[in-house]
Design a protein around this nucleic acid. Structure first.
Length: 113
DNA sequence: CCCTTGACTATCT
DNA sequence: GAGATAGCCAAGG
């Protein structure tokens, strides 16, 4: 384990574990919230190193698509878990909630109900 | 060192 | 809005 990983992992786990049911966050958003802007690509690795289970399936791309290859096992798993929490999909993308109308762009994309 | 690899992104066609 | 492109940066070979 490098020093970077120790700090980065801790910060990422904290953010990811805080994502609530029915909500999603992007890799880049998590990296920023964790205090490591520009490290979106490292977020998945940090989650993989976690000993405790994390709601990894609530993490998606900034364009609202899932990071796995559509049709893959992982894709179906993630999508199933999200839909079970009420997250809706249209055209392979996570649908923003209606009740978010009127909020800032960021909130409308990722904010709570 | 140099080169490749990512569960990524912002930007431009 | 979908596809291509360039930028990103730690890790590992």
């Amino acid at each position: 384990m490098t020093a970077f990983q120790r700090r980065f992992d801790q910060a990422v786990w904290k953010i990811v574990s805080g994502i609530q049911r029915g909500r999603v966050m992007s890799y880049g958003q998590i990296a920023r919230a964790a205090g490591f802007p520009r490290h979106a690509r490292s977020v998945s690795k940090a989650m993989g190193r976690s000993a405790m289970p994390l709601p990894w399936y609530r993490v998606i791309r900034s364009d609202r698509t899932l990071a796995f290859d559509p049709g893959s096992k992982a894709y179906r798993k993630q999508r199933g878990l999200l839909e079970k929490e009420g997250v809706r999909f249209v055209g392979g993308k996570v649908v923003p909630l209606d009740s978010d109308r009127g909020k800032s762009l960021d909130e409308s994309l990722w904010g709570p109900r």
